[in-house]
Write a protein that binds this DNA or RNA. Structure first.
Lengths: 345, 345
DNA sequence: TTGTACGCGTTATCAG
DNA sequence: CTGATAACGCGTACAA
């Protein structure tokens, strides 16, 4: 306390003590204090002790921001932009990525775009200003050409679940075609004859992919167009439940339904389980209570997808300038039902 | 390109262009470039144009890290430590907090402690080193006295779902007592006579609180101890399903079950729905498919809890040195069933 | 073993 | 209107 330098910190307690404060209190130079804090051997144990004592006294904690600025090292922060964290699919995606990144000592900064392309653009901008190490994005926007310069400079982007329009970059998507084919095959194996697909709006990329796949797959299987039903524009479980009720009322002959995502599947399951009509339901997405609702699903685990995206990012870090962008497609298959997670709040 | 200053950036494309680069290219001083980028009026529109052109040419983006270091402004990053992001409860918690913080322009950096106190301590340390603005923590550890100095200095902590042992700090918890009482009342109203509670291990604070509340509530309601059943140590849905099966086999007279969290409720519901035994189930936690499983729940919405914790943190920011720590207790009540979320992947 | 200069990218101060 | 210079907190290079 005999040093004027630390006075300002005494005035503003919110400011953390700096190396200068520690040095002042222990009566050494800043550099010596720095050496001690970094565990350098080049300092006498006597002064080292004094410095350490001062540090704990003041509650000193090194400022990683300043350190990184000085060293010029890359941040260990990875940004991730999803549309909604409360949605189990995106939460699982984030969980998978976070887990994998944590193994490499990387931290995740998460932002939600709420399916708003403009908001997403601002979020990405903000993350870039923060000089994150890389970015994992579930695209909400329609044009990513504005990121072209960053990409060319060697900044690492990975796009998940949907590709990024107008930008060459790494991406991980799901095998929507193969997945829908599996769903259909699964229903056909169970002797379903009249099959419906219930999906979100077609301006969502995955939805339109899956609908398209359904059309092609049913054609290949030589199903009569009169025996297939395509319902779109379903956003919520409630809408799905209602749509299913109407569908089965109008067409009681329907005996198989493909739900293109988890929320839709929950709604479909609600209706089919109540009506007790003999209709098989399969879900494109994996979700915890599927087996309770007698719904078979693909092994489309969002956590796995998240992990894959993290791994793609890590590989990109190794070779940032490589102009050979990878487009990984995660295979999905029908599976048995699985235990749900663990919780301990 | 006529300036040697930008040479190093030409060599290492990963490095972002700096103000110096922009200044060099546009032939002005760094400060003038800075003025332009910050929209200062104190500069002739002619040079402003030149600078702007150079900036877009180089793809300049201001470095927020350096700026904050210089200005000494607080970071707009808030750290959050939960135990598992793949768990819908914690994901909802994070979603609620993120949403509220985003309204204030604050970003969330998320880390998962995996119920490991040691790991959690490291995560907190790391976030502190990064000089986050504040910290929202779902405690996994057993002693937070090591944060005392930070707290005294005016650093903002908020603890959620459980209080922080050995640390005076703001916290938001759930009214576990009242909630369990509501669950019990709900079952009694439906003429249940023999009631069981199925819970996690008692060394989890919320679990032990809820079990304790159950004991007291059943005592107050003058239930014969022989008519109540307490099952603990249940971590997963599968364990819950199994435990329920065993319970109902040994004690077919049981006609009411309280599940102390969402995962347990899913497992209980699986069994009771299959067995078709006349047993009412209530869940302490709210979760999407509860109504499909004929489970009534409290309105214990993790998103609401997350929002509350963010708001408490924001209030703490206003008055960091206030030694009057708030202990908010979120009331929970029985409720009708609600639509589940929206998804569009 | 310890200290002095200097720089990371930015902004504030104060001069020109 | 514009530009040197110093500073934020820290680490590297080189002396002492």
């Amino acid at each position: 306390m005999e040093e004027p330098q630390s006075l300002d910190h005494a005035i503003d307690p919110l400011a953390h003590p700096t190396l200068a404060d520690v040095a002042a209190v222990s009566g050494v130079s800043i550099k010596t204090a720095s050496r001690v804090m970094n565990g350098s051997q080049q300092v006498s144990s006597a002064t080292a002790e004094r410095v350490k004592k001062a540090a704990t006294l003041l509650g000193y904690r090194s400022n990683r921001i300043a350190r990184e600025l000085r060293v010029g090292s890359l941040s260990n922060l990875v940004g991730m932009v999803i549309s909604d964290l409360a949605n189990p699919f995106y939460a699982g995606l984030a969980a998978g990525a976070e887990e994998r990144l944590a193994q490499e000592g990387l931290d995740l900064i998460l932002a939600t775009a709420r399916d708003d392309g403009e908001r997403e653009k601002n979020l990405i901008e903000s993350l870039l200003e923060r000089r994150v190490r890389g970015l994992i994005i579930v695209p909400s926007g329609e044009d990513y050409s504005h990121l072209h310069q960053e990409r060319k400079r060697g900044f690492s982007f990975v796009f998940v679940d949907r590709p990024a329009p107008y930008l060459d970059a790494d991406s991980v998507t799901v095998d929507n075609r193969g997945g829908v084919q599996s769903c259909l095959d699964h229903l056909l194996q169970q002797k379903c004859k009249k099959i419906a697909i219930i999906a979100d709006t077609t301006n969502i990329w995955t939805a339109s992919e899956r609908i398209e796949a359904f059309k092609q797959a049913t054609f290949r299987s030589k199903l009569d167009p009169k025996d297939i039903f395509i319902i779109t524009n379903i956003h919520t479980s409630d809408e799905a439940a209602l749509a299913t009720r109407e569908l089965l009322a109008d067409h009681p002959e329907v005996d198989g339904i493909i739900a293109t995502n988890d929320l839709i599947a929950m709604g479909v399951g609600q209706t089919t389980n109540l009506l007790k009509q003999p209709v098989k339901v399969v879900s494109f997405d994996l979700f915890p209570t599927a087996n309770l609702l007698n719904i078979d699903t693909l092994d489309h685990d969002p956590k796995r997808l998240g992990r894959l995206s993290a791994e793609l990012l890590l590989r990109r870090f190794e070779n940032p300038m490589d102009r050979n962008y990878r487009t990984e497609i995660m295979k999905v298959e029908m599976r048995g039902n699985e235990p749900v997670g663990r919780r301990s709040s």
